[in-house]
């Protein structure tokens, strides 16, 4: 992937994600919820009748924050996936090359007078990658729940008819890609088995390590695929919530 393409894709994603996070609307259409707004932490997300947000009517929310919460709930959520990707070993390579030109390409001179790498603040913070990985797993579980819920007419158990639409599969593929990206992470590889000295004494962990190693070889591809698809998932839900896509329901 050339630095110019990395630059273009990453910049477009950041621009789109910023827009989508600040819109604070059009993120829910029964039964699909945008991954940027899940889980909804504030009651303003949908419950309160006189504070209803367009395109978010009826969205299930956790209600951690009351109706006083005015900022878009996506801002709270996006910190974690953003942190996970910012500190990811693959993205680091991509943006050091594409944005910081350090170096722009192998054996090409970099334009900086001094270089201290990841030894000082703020870049020393890259070392907390594994914590973002743990948080990422929580979000993956939530988005998997959302994907399953996209195959159900209503989330209330009393009224649980089936539902299959294009959006159900969009949410499902999105969750699968995010799992694959998280599990192929270098920190995950270290945690499941890489930190051991004796593979032979831990055969099960060695097996997991072998599995993650295979996935890890595709970390770059999974990073791009999951990044682009999560944005497309939001686009789909946004357009559906705004009523541009019709019903989109198959069964």
């Amino acid at each position: 992937m050339s630095p110019a393409i990395s630059f273009a894709v990453l910049s477009s994603f950041v621009a789109y994600a910023t827009y989508a996070a600040f819109v604070n609307g059009f993120y829910y259409v029964k039964p699909y919820i945008s991954p940027f707004y899940s889980p909804c932490l504030a009651t303003v997300c949908g419950g309160d009748s006189h504070q209803r947000i367009q395109g978010a009517n009826g969205v299930p929310h956790l209600g951690v924050f009351g109706p006083w919460w005015a900022i878009s709930p996506a801002i709270l959520i996006l910190i974690f996936p953003l942190g996970f990707r910012m500190t990811c070993y693959y993205y680091r390579r991509a943006y050091y090359r594409a944005f910081w030109l350090s170096p722009p390409a192998c054996a090409v001179a970099e334009p900086h007078k001094k270089y201290s790498g990841e030894t000082r603040f703020p870049l020393i913070m890259q070392n907390i990658h594994r914590y973002f990985f743990y948080f990422g797993l929580i979000f993956n579980a939530i988005l998997t729940y959302d994907a399953v819920a996209a195959f159900v007419e209503s989330r209330s158990p009393a009224y649980g008819g089936g539902h299959v639409g294009l959006g159900s599969f969009v949410l499902l593929i999105n969750a699968c890609l995010l799992w694959a990206y998280s599990l192929s992470c270098h920190s995950c590889r270290h945690i499941v088995g890489g930190r051991l000295k004796h593979f032979s004494k831990h055969p099960l962990r060695f097996k997991f390590w072998g599995f993650v190693t295979k996935l890890n070889a595709k970390h770059m591809q999974l990073a791009w695929a999951s990044l682009i698809f999560v944005a497309l998932t939001d686009v789909y839900v946004r357009l559906a919530a705004a009523g541009w896509l019709g019903h989109g329901r198959w069964i």
Partner: peptide, 21 residues
Amino acid sequence: GMCNITKCCTEVCPEHIKITD
């Protein structure tokens, strides 16, 4: 900590050692 994992070492290795990964 100076290494910022831009993987150029891996790219040039004639023995194809996955130095970075």
